[in-house]
């Protein structure tokens, strides 16, 4: 059985990639994900704003009370500043890339144009197999035009592509006005892969404490339908690699992603729930399904259910059918 695939130009032993999660915060976690069967590991994002605010906070703490008392003009040895390289992230990347047997992809979320390319270069030097751009930003103000947002994202991609020789993936938002067009523009601008989609951790409200609390981070299986649909739509027209990054909870989700046309399917929640070794279970399920249908390799069925060329009318028909079916759902008894 040949499960191998190619994603952003990198040959992978199978189509299951571990996407960023708390498991990829430590070398041990990355190792366990690789040992568990994942074909590649995407590290958590290097968030520049977090780095800057952390450095700023640390320096403020280190300097608190300094230059005040003749005996204790300072309380700390020199603390690295915001301009220091993000050693913690790069060290994890370097050690992961050197010790695990699968490609390790770094994920980047910059805060300024200059920093995207600087960090990307540092990631390349630290041994990343590829870079995933996490284009998440706080919701833009109401005055920002959609085109401005898109141009900014394309500019960032251009900067990073120019800075590194590595393949670069873009983790897309599902909220572009025209996801399809944006995907095509990103691919034209050199994106080696598109990851569908970024999930935004919107906060919740605690009605007792009257405060905002972090939202729940784990996905559910129905969430895979949106990226799967878009993969199916984009597959025929795009040569860039495509990844589904949401809602993978079973081997059947893996199969569905591949049928829609994804080159890889990413898993997070399921590995957090069942442990990094659960990749094995998903891959065994995939193999069993392929065996039952007589597929010897992934290529034979990948994109089988991708959309044809006549996209708008076929989609319209499917949409209407789906809507009708949804409206027919029986309400509960009460």
């Amino acid at each position: 059985m040949d499960l191998s695939t190619t994603y952003m130009g990198i040959k992978l032993r199978n189509p299951l990639v571990a996407s960023p999660s708390p498991l990829s915060h430590t070398l041990d976690g990355v190792r366990r994900l690789a040992d568990g069967g994942a074909a590649a590991v995407v590290l958590h994002s290097l968030f520049e704003e977090d780095l800057l605010s952390q450095a700023e906070h640390q320096i403020a703490l280190a300097e608190a009370g300094s230059e005040s008392s003749p005996e204790s003009l300072s309380f700390f040895p020199e603390i690295p500043g915001a301009d220091a390289e993000p050693r913690r992230y790069l060290s994890l990347l370097e050690r992961s890339a050197a010790t695990v047997g699968v490609p390790v992809v770094a994920s980047l979320n910059g805060a300024s144009p200059g920093s995207w390319s600087r960090y990307a270069r540092q990631m390349q030097d630290a041994g990343a197999a590829g870079i995933e751009l996490n284009l998440y930003a706080s919701p833009a103000g109401p005055a920002t035009a959609a085109r401005t947002v898109e141009e900014t994202h394309l500019e960032i991609l251009g900067l990073v592509k120019a800075a590194v020789a590595l393949p670069v993936a873009v983790k897309m938002s599902p909220y572009y006005s025209s996801v399809g067009e944006m995907a095509a523009r990103l691919a034209d601008a050199g994106a080696d892969a598109l990851v569908l989609f970024n999930r935004f951790m919107h906060p919740d409200i605690d009605t007792d404490a009257l405060s905002l609390v972090p939202g729940i981070g784990l996905s559910s299986p129905p969430e895979a339908r949106l990226p799967r649909t878009w993969v199916a739509l984009l597959r025929p027209s795009l040569s860039a690699s495509l990844a589904i990054s949401t809602g993978t909870h079973s081997s059947s989700d893996l199969v569905k992603g591949l049928l829609a046309g994804a080159d890889v399917v990413m898993a997070t929640s399921v590995l957090l729930n069942h442990g990094p070794g659960h990749s094995e279970v998903l891959l065994e399920g995939l193999s069993a399904w392929m065996e039952a249908r007589g597929y010897a390799n992934v290529k034979q069925f990948r994109g089988l259910l991708a959309s044809g060329r006549n996209v708008p009318s076929r989609e319209r028909v499917r949409y209407v059918e789906a809507l009708r079916a949804a409206n027919a759902v029986q309400a509960g008894t009460w």
Binding site: T26, L27, Q54, A55, Q58, L61, A62, F76, I79, P80, A84, R87, R88, S91, L92, R95
Partner: peptide, 16 residues
């Protein structure tokens, strides 16, 4: 606490 957190930035391997 910075006394611990700072080491994670200067020498992450050792901090771990």
């Amino acid at each position: 606490e910075l006394r611990f957190a700072a080491l994670a930035r200067t020498n992450p391997e050792e901090a771990e």
